[in-house]
Simulated scan of single mutants.
Amino acid sequence: MKIQINTMAELGEVIRATRKANKIRLDDLAGMAGVGPVFVGDVEYGKETAQMGRVIKLMSELGLKFTVDVPTSAEPYLEKIRKGKGLIRPSKRKAHKTTST
């Protein structure tokens, strides 16, 4: 089944339901994904500031796939970025020297 996710709470519900359906304890999932059990609980209850990389690890351990519906207008830019042609990293700001008088 494919469903649209609009909030972290909705994603958390899917993660929790999948974990429970597979009879995986929260702390076991945390160990499998290399995160803490508090983090898993936070994600399952929709914490807005959860680190995306860790959330994707949880999803992967549960067999959930993360897909994005990319607009057609963004496809050429995505291709360019993936090829490394158009990926311009911002330069680090130089520290301002202060002089005392």
Score class of each variant (00 low, 15 high):
Lys94Asp: 08
Met8Ser: 03
Ser91Pro: 04
Gly36Gln: 05
Phe66Gln: 06
Ser73Gln: 04
Thr98Phe: 04
Arg93Gly: 09
Glu44Ile: 13
Glu75Lys: 10
Gly46Gln: 06
Ser60Lys: 15
Pro37Asn: 10
Ala9Gly: 01
Lys20Tyr: 06
Arg82Phe: 10
Leu26Glu: 00
Gly46His: 05
Ile5Ala: 01
Phe66Met: 07
Glu61His: 13
Thr72Arg: 06
Pro71Gly: 02
Lys20Ser: 14
Arg16Ile: 08
Pro37Lys: 15
Gly63Ser: 13
Thr49Gln: 13
Glu61Ile: 08
Met52Phe: 14
Thr18Arg: 15
Leu58Tyr: 05
Val68Met: 07
Arg25Lys: 06
Glu79Ile: 08
Gly86Cys: 09
Lys92Trp: 15
Lys80Ala: 10
Tyr77Glu: 09
Leu11Lys: 01
Leu11Asn: 02
Asn22Leu: 15
Tyr77Pro: 01
Arg82Ser: 12
Ala17Lys: 11
Ile24Asp: 02
Val55Leu: 10
Gly84Thr: 14
Ile56Val: 13
Arg89Val: 12
Ala33Asn: 03
Ser100Pro: 07
Gln51Arg: 14
Asp69Gln: 08
Arg19Thr: 00
Gly31Ser: 07
Ala21Val: 13
Leu64Gly: 11
Gly36Phe: 04
Lys2Ser: 09
Lys23Leu: 05
Ile24Gln: 03
Ser60Pro: 10
Ile3Ala: 00
Met1Trp: 07
Met52Cys: 13
Leu62Met: 12
Met8Gln: 03
Ala33Lys: 02
Gly12His: 00
Lys23Pro: 01
Val35His: 00
Ala33Gln: 02
Val70Met: 06
Ala74Asp: 09
Ala95Phe: 05
